[in-house]
Design a protein around this nucleic acid. Structure first.
Lengths: 284, 284
DNA sequence: GAGTGACCTCGAACACTGTACGAGACCCCC
DNA sequence: GGGGGTCTCGTACAGTGTTCGAGGTCACTC
């Protein structure tokens, strides 16, 4: 594993110098760096704008949101918005954080329950706001609501017995899995959404493409056929798949928690390819 | 868990009807649905265009790619490209799949090794092509290269002893974790990239924002300070975090593989909040 | 050699986009 | 009444993806 890690690290360093050919440097900015402008209580407000933006985003998708359309919805000129919001990207940052705020956690629960709540909460929010999919990979979530949720999760893990860097690692893995598991669903649902048809129609429309694409990978084609013939409800199947991976991950974390030799657990005793010694993988 | 799942399912159904206010239906299309056009061997070619597009994407980022710029780079008019590629989205689909092709897997290895290779491979590719981050959440990866890699992974899991739907579930969880773990890194690196400064400068520029944002979550602030004072190399720390979660997940999957009662494993015996019976979480 | 039709290029134009700028309107306080 | 901050917005600019149709270049047939 160390070798692979080394390679990756080199890649990162190399990327840093390789990129940026003729791109003009754009100073780092974020809504959270600057405080909101308005004081007066009339006319437009930031909250109002963000709310309206989310309505458009939810109803028509990310690329349907334009400043002109948003202004029109609010009965205002497009450029009026720029008094309350510096750029469109900042507006999206605000909308993102608003969505993060929908995740509600109980700070009293166990680490495992909290992880589960967080995971299902994030997934639900993402599926409710499909536009989050394209945004999460482009701009970091550093808004107060996102941080609040992560802090609660982090606290639960700390109380649960994780220590040092392991807290961050474990928390990160839960967030990562949730994000990654939901993303392809979002991509799929976005496609269905844009097509204007139902999921069933879309599946039907996709079948010839899948058949053609899997012409040279018979095992995949086989699995797809089996999958289709089972007449599963796709939404239910996705939920099962999501839960399966989440359980596996949490089990793995729980196992780590019970390892006898965890000094600072700075150095990983096991690698990705060799199973950890004291898990159920090797019966005692 | 069933209750939560139920809620999610309802949400999905509800979304399907709630969305789509005034969006014009756009027939489903994909590059993979239509076969390429050109036959003659002169002038532009699809490969050439995709390659040039990826050069721009790598060097200047997703939003720097415009058809006019791409045309100019190839010494052609912008609209000439439309003979070889139906839309810009299709071009991006092609570029995405080209990136997927960079993942090389050995079909002889064990399921755990293959999972590790896949995971590190995907992560490396994503970090090499930052623009993938914004794309993976928007359009599904159903190109031949993406399918090829997934098929290899799937085969390895099947050989490794996974059965029925569990194969899909396990494979999905590995892909999901990798995707989700890399996405925030991409978001961060994209931000650094756009700012034009080094990672260290960016971290320094971010500090006051983090301090301000974590004003009401002292535990997070504490952790951030500890993290900063440790003077870790951020890239190394990220690699450790990535490996930690991957190991935990693979351990969890391995544990599932050894469970004695796995009939068709259609129904999950354990839920996200209650640890599975036969893992190390509950010592026998 | 003329003709035909497929392959390929591209300039002009259209309907958009995000946003800078500056003129003006409103309101409160001196 | 007169500032001065708060807020709106029409105009304009430089760009975007994409359509359309006119033209050019081949390989082939008669």
């Amino acid at each position: 594993m160390f070798e692979v890690t080394r390679t990756l690290y080199d890649c990162l360093v190399q990327c840093a110098s390789e990129y940026r050919e003729g791109v003009p440097p754009k100073e780092f900015t974020s809504v959270w760096a600057r405080e909101p402008r308005g004081q007066r209580e009339q006319g437009l407000s930031r909250d109002q704008i963000v709310r309206a933006a989310m309505e458009i985003l939810d109803a028509e998708g990310l690329e349907a949101l334009s400043m002109r359309k948003l202004g029109a919805r609010l009965g205002a000129g497009a450029t009026s918005l720029y008094w309350h919001v510096a750029t469109k990207d900042e507006l999206l940052e605000l909308a993102m954080d608003q969505a993060w705020g929908e995740i509600q956690l109980d700070p009293e629960k166990s680490w495992r329950e909290t992880a589960s709540d967080y995971s299902y909460g994030l997934r639900g929010t993402m599926l409710h706001h499909l536009w989050l999919g394209s945004l999460l990979g482009g701009m970091p979530s550093i808004g107060p609501q996102a941080l609040r949720a992560s802090a609660t999760l982090l606290n639960a893990f700390q109380r649960g017995g994780f220590e040092g860097m392991e807290i961050d690692f474990a928390v990160n893995s839960v967030i990562s899995y949730t994000l990654g598991a939901t993303l392809p669903e979002i991509a799929w649902r976005t496609m269905v959404f844009r097509s204007g048809s139902t999921e069933e129609e879309q599946v039907e429309a996709m079948t010839p493409i899948i058949e053609a694409a899997t012409a040279h990978t018979p095992e995949l084609r086989e699995r797809h056929r089996e999958y289709m013939s089972g007449s599963y409800d796709p939404a239910v199947a996705r939920n099962l798949a999501f839960d399966y991976g989440l359980v596996a991950l949490l089990d793995g974390l729980a196992a780590r928690l019970l390892q006898p030799d965890r000094p600072g657990s700075r150095t990983a005793q096991s690698s990705a390819v060799t199973p950890a010694e004291s898990t159920a993988a090797q019966p005692t």
